[in-house]
């Protein structure tokens, strides 16, 4: 679905050229220590930053060939922080950027567990509630309906930057299950920056491990996450156990 062809950046943050592909029907986790370049890579993938070298291609077309509105139908982004200056009602907020007329897509509000928040203002929400509302808005922009088959067969790319950072453990599980379920659809790909390695290992099909502005490993969680790599990249002593399928479990050493 999306190809990165030697995509790199010199400024404001140096990113060594990355050549990789993101397939439909895939939940991809971007992991790495703070300041490794995960959000920058996500911005390049989204088209917000233009690379200094290489090219990002969506469906075999360079991103520059799409108009902003065309891109918005195929790709949505959830940023780390959402700070609104005005008190949007949640029901209004999730319809911002909606490409279709009428109500939000069926099932989004229920899937994100925000039905009880619809009449609230976004300024009154907690961090976790706002994060769920922001994700619901992105799903609605792409017309992705968790309740049933997504409208049409147009490819959808959902990009999320630390979507679980403000969520409690129940909501983290709820969100990751939803993303996992969405990414089973062949024309949907989900790319997710995650700091929780256990969540990444448990739910992602593939992981890209970033360190100091370069992609240092990519593969299934079992291929990428081992005690030696984690100690080298993160400086943390852990024990890694094999889980179901490609998943692994990571435990901090005492």
């Amino acid at each position: 679905m999306l190809d990165l062809l030697a995509v790199g950046l010199h400024r404001p943050f140096a990113l060594s050229p990355v050549t990789e592909a993101i397939q439909g029907g895939q939940l991809l986790g971007l992991i790495g220590p703070n300041g490794a370049g995960k959000s920058t890579l996500l911005s390049l993938i989204s088209g917000y930053i233009t690379p200094d070298c290489g090219e990002v291609r969506l469906l075999d077309q360079p991103l520059s060939a799409y108009s902003p509105r065309q891109l918005a139908r195929n790709r949505a982004l959830v940023t780390q922080h959402m700070d609104s200056a005005f008190d949007w009602q949640v029901g209004e907020f999730i319809q911002l950027g909606q490409g279709h007329a009428g109500l939000p897509c069926a099932g989004i509000v229920e899937a994100m567990d925000i039905t009880h928040l619809l009449d609230r203002g976004v300024l009154s929400l907690s961090g976790g509630e706002l994060q769920r509302v922001t994700i619901a808005r992105a799903l609605n922009q792409l017309a992705i309906s968790p309740a049933g088959p997504t409208e049409g067969q147009a490819p959808r790319l959902l990009l999320l930057d630390e979507p679980t950072s403000a969520l409690d453990i129940g909501q983290q599980q709820n969100l990751m299950r939803l993303l996992r379920r969405l990414a089973r659809v062949p024309h949907i790909a989900v790319v997710c920056v995650l700091h929780d390695l256990n969540l990444a290992a448990r739910y992602c099909d593939r992981l890209w491990l970033m360190e100091k502005g370069r992609l240092c490993a990519s593969g299934t969680p079992a291929q990428v996450l081992n005690a030696h790599t984690i100690e080298t990249v993160f400086g943390a002593q852990v024990s890694v156990t094999a889980g179901p399928g490609h998943a692994v479990g990571i435990e901090l050493a005492c």
């Binding site: 917000y48 902003p68 911002l96």
Partner: peptide
Amino acid sequence: DLFQLGEVSAHAAGL
């Protein structure tokens, strides 16, 4: 309205 999402999100929403 879209601009209220912040510049990065608004760009991703087609603005």
